[in-house]
């Protein structure tokens, strides 16, 4: 039933989402996302990025408007049971921002095998996939560990592994680099760039414009009014400090240079050479 449209993955038209019936979380969202795209969702806290990712993963459904994925309109009914639901869950994986939400199984091994097992993949295949995923992410030693005894960085890696074992075509990541040290962050970025290819798509939310610059081929900015305020190549917007300031993506910072006080927009700490 899912048409194998290999170029267009998502088609969102006039998406609105309200929390508890009246608190707006997303307004008038329109975009197309095709295979091969690496999309960064950028916006201030509370702009609705997490909600949008959950909608793209078929966990929440828009209050109005429609979302097509692989040529099929997503609805609660379609994703409830059956082959179509299983096929969608297999193709699309979401890594939640909070690893304590993502990791609910008794051990890392249970966690990595969870997805493929639920989707009815044969046991031998599940075991080989899980082993491979743990190796690729270099976390085979954590196999028997319970998730609550992992460090923050390890939790993030296992979260990613738990979704990668599904071998998804579309990877949705909610704030993947938050809480990672610079070294782990570099590793993650390398991994994502390696993972991506023409047939796959990556959509990730972030606050870190560094990561956008290094990974994304496209940036979608959600404003404080919960609608899309910019959509295009990262280079177009990352150099426009007025735009970034206006959307609370950077903040103005005072610095003292000798006796002179000057103000300039603040991008990244390591760019300052004082």
């Amino acid at each position: 039933m899912i048409s194998l449209d290999n170029t267009l993955i998502y088609k969102a038209k006039d998406l609105y989402y309200d929390y508890l019936g009246n608190i707006p979380a997303l307004r008038n969202i329109c975009f197309n996302i095709g295979a091969g795209e690496l999309v960064a969702l950028v916006g201030a806290n509370g702009s609705g990025k997490s909600t949008l990712l959950k909608i793209l993963d078929g966990l929440l459904f828009p209050t109005s408007g429609e979302l097509m994925a692989f040529g099929t309109r997503l609805s609660e009914k379609i994703l409830e049971t059956g082959n179509l639901a299983a096929e969608f869950r297999r193709r699309v994986g979401l890594v939640f921002q909070d690893p304590d939400v993502q990791l609910f199984s008794p051990t890392v091994w249970d966690e990595v095998t969870f997805g493929p097992l639920q989707l009815g993949i044969s046991k031998d295949e599940v075991i080989s996939r899980a082993n491979e995923t743990l190796e690729v992410l270099n976390i085979s030693s954590l196999r028997e560990r319970p998730p609550y005894l992992l460090s923050g960085g390890e939790k993030k890696k296992v979260s990613l592994a738990s979704v990668l074992s599904l071998r998804p075509q579309v990877l949705l990541l909610d704030e993947p680099t938050t809480g990672l040290d610079p070294w782990s962050q570099g590793n993650l970025i390398d991994f994502l760039l390696q993972w991506a290819d023409k047939g796959k798509a990556l959509v990730f939310s972030t606050q870190d414009l560094d990561v956008v610059e290094e990974v994304a081929t496209r940036i979608i900015v959600i404003g404080a009014s919960h609608d899309i305020v910019a959509d295009g190549m990262p280079e177009e917007f990352l150099s426009d400090s007025d735009f970034l300031l206006r959307n609370n993506l950077i903040h103005e910072h005072s610095h003292r240079h000798k006796e002179l006080v000057h103000r300039h927009p603040h991008l990244h700490e390591h760019m300052h050479e004082h």
């Binding site: 959950k54 993963d57 078929g58 966990l59 929440l60 049971t81 639901a85 299983a86 869950r89 297999r90 994986g93 979401l94 939640f96 939400v101 993502q102 609910f104 249970d110 095998t113 969870f114 997805g115 097992l117 639920q118 989707l119 009815g120 738990s162 979704v163 599904l166």
Partner: peptide, 14 residues
């Protein structure tokens, strides 16, 4: 939601 996202349909297969 996290369980649902990874294919959970009411019974955990192990």
């Amino acid at each position: 939601l996290a369980m649902l996202s990874r294919g959970y349909q009411g019974e955990i297969h192990t």
